[in-house]
Simulated scan of single mutants.
Amino acid sequence: MATKAALKRLTREYQNIQKNPPPYIVAHPSESNILEWHYIITGPPGTPYENGQYWGTLMFPPEYPFAPPAIRMHTPSGRFQPSSRLCLSISDFHPKSFNPAWEVSTIIIGLLSFMTSEEMTTGSISASEAERRVLAARSRWWNSTGGGSHVSATPGVTPTSKGINNVKAGDGGVKFRTEWPELDQDNWKWMKSNRIDENTGQILRDPNASATNCSPETSALRRRPNGSAPGLGSVIEGGHVAREAGHSWTYRHTVWIGLAVMFGYALLSRLVNDVQGR
């Protein structure tokens, strides 16, 4: 339960962030608990996260602002382990370095700055730019479907939206829908208009569309997230297969044919020399 000081401070900060939201950031406290804040970071242009929708939570201690919050990002990004506590100078990993003058907006701006860097810490991961772009393209689908788990709900069991432990893939998007109902509706409209498969997050083929009309975002949505880093996708093997399928047998075996010709020439030359030497 929040102290009076924390309640007063967080109430004022919510008013401030509503009036002057930082670029690419929106945030609000949960209706049931002012110490539980939810934020959305929109991936900035010119980064691998461009147009991605990254949802996370700040869990403030009752004694805030004299102690920092626990920071998590739930949406897979290729930068952070989903729903893991992040070790930052502005998080609860370093309470002694936290400045009481820092506000919610300051904390999330700091998180965004760290996200767009390549510095490693507890809770961060490595991934390629291409992998991060794939996850950015799939982020709206992931948030609103719980990673596709909305289609596999157990009959007769009603998912709960209480607590922050229900935000990983598997809750069917219930927690996101509870905290961001308008964004959730927009996401479903976006999935429908872009023919996104609710089960996989991949774009469905439009039989009336030209096969050559393929935007970068559409290409990303068609890729499967089965790569080197957790939850990521790799298309290298598929590219090799496609290239080989487009070449003839002779082209694909040029090296072996060349070696066979050289070996045959050498053998023939030796036979000629042996005959002449007799």
Rank of each mutant, 00 (worst) to 15 (best):
G227Y: 00
A242P: 00
A153L: 15
A260Q: 11
K19V: 04
F66E: 08
V241P: 00
K162G: 10
I203R: 06
Y49D: 00
S144Y: 03
S152W: 07
E118L: 12
T75N: 03
E103Y: 00
P95N: 02
D197H: 05
T116H: 07
T160F: 05
P100A: 08
T121M: 08
W102F: 09
S215W: 03
R72P: 04
W256L: 15
W190N: 09
G56A: 04
D92P: 01
T47Q: 04
S228L: 14
A220L: 05
S32I: 07
L268H: 13
N194F: 01
T42V: 11
P225E: 01
N99R: 12
R12F: 04
R252W: 05
L268R: 14
E119M: 11
T11H: 08
P207C: 03
T212E: 10
A6L: 00
A70N: 13
E50R: 05
G170Q: 03
R252F: 03
I203N: 00
D184E: 12
M120A: 11
E198V: 15
H38A: 10
I164S: 13
H253N: 15
A101Q: 12
V235Y: 08
I90W: 01
G156W: 06
P82N: 05
S128I: 04
R195E: 01
Y24M: 09
I107R: 05
A260R: 10
E129G: 07
P225N: 02
Q185F: 06
T254Y: 09
R177D: 08
N199R: 15
F93L: 04
I41N: 02
R132K: 14
L268K: 12
P65S: 02
K189G: 10
C87R: 06
D92Y: 05
V151C: 13
I109K: 11
Y39Q: 02
F80L: 03
